[in-house]
Design a protein around this nucleic acid. Structure first.
Lengths: 177, 177
DNA sequence: TAAAATATGTCAATATGGCTGACATAAATT
DNA sequence: AATTTATGTCAGCCATATTGACATATTTTA
């Protein structure tokens, strides 16, 4: 990260006007907000690198990940999870199908549905992408002590919009069969 | 979040091939990875909405946030934090300066530097953007119990690339004056 | 059965936010 | 005086998202 050291704020004349309210709770929250930014930034850096080798981007990653974790999921479900439009997903999905990472099957009960599955090639890619992230998470949990897993999980869970929590929980636990 | 319920996986014929290694530690890590995705997704949704009102995007948000937290920071430091190129930052910064959210001042000791500051208008925007995020973080910490703040912070910190942690810590704590 | 709703796909146009490479200027350092 | 540093800018490109309109097949409903 080279050198990020800030120059001493010679908060000289005409400085930035109204200072922040110096509320310690606010400060604490701001620090956590920034930590989340940096953690997320580094967290996606490993997959990004792998993906660039395939000519793929983050959108492809998300599709491979969620389809891999939930074989047979519907397109509409994927749209809901990713919160993007059909048109945006369209190209990415087409590319993944054309390059044989993903395939579709007609739904049994509803033949309008195109259920999504990873091919073996897709599964291999999924694992490649998961490896560094799993290692990173495990390391972090380990280094933060025994209670860390539960509390970290709890905080993340409560950062999610209240109305979505039940669905997310269902999705995550279901994905583990 | 509408309805994300997955259809029962009628993991019929020709299903997705090689199943995942059913390692509970792996499973746990995958769930945390997904929680981080969902938490981050919702976490940036509030600012996104506010920004769209100004015709700004996430890049503008990041600039306003970090310049606001570190008045007088240099362009090079901002680039290091955001991990983007000079050219990418250029447009965003120009827009923020033209619309009077950010201004630049020559460095005192080094007159090549263009130190960055928020105008009053910029500070107001920063506060608007911070409000929902601070509320969200506080709520989550509260609901996750007394130890949550420390451990959540610790995990996030260790998710950051080891080589960057010292700099991030410095940046974050310095930002609180 | 006919009409309506649903699941998906696609076309075209557009915006944003990244990227690379090349080059320019001013100021500081060697 | 030469080099390095801090910043800016031009031009072109790519990835990922957007909206709106429309098409098709299938299921559900009236």
């Amino acid at each position: 990260m080279a050198d990020i050291n800030l120059q001493e704020k010679s908060d000289g004349p005409e400085s930035g006007a109204t200072p922040l309210p110096d509320d310690p709770e606010r400060r604490q929250a701001l620090e956590l907000i920034e930590l989340l930014f940096f953690a997320y930034r580094d967290f996606i850096s490993d997959p990004d690198e792998i993906l660039s080798g395939y000519g793929f981007g983050r959108a492809h990653h998300r599709v491979v990940h969620f389809v891999g974790r939930n074989p047979g999921m519907r397109v509409a479900q994927l749209l809901e999870i990713l919160r993007i439009t059909k048109q945006s997903l369209g190209r990415v999905l087409r590319e993944l199908i054309e390059t044989d990472f993903v395939y579709q099957r007609e739904g049994d009960r509803d033949r309008r549905q195109r259920l999504l599955y990873l091919t073996d090639k897709g599964i291999a890619l999924m694992h490649d992408l998961q490896e560094p992230q799993i290692a990173r998470v495990r390391r972090a949990i380990e280094q933060a002590g025994p209670e860390a897993e539960r509390l970290y999980r709890d905080v993340l869970f409560h950062l999610i919009d209240a109305g979505d929590r039940a669905n997310v929980e269902l999705l995550i636990s279901k994905a583990d069969e």
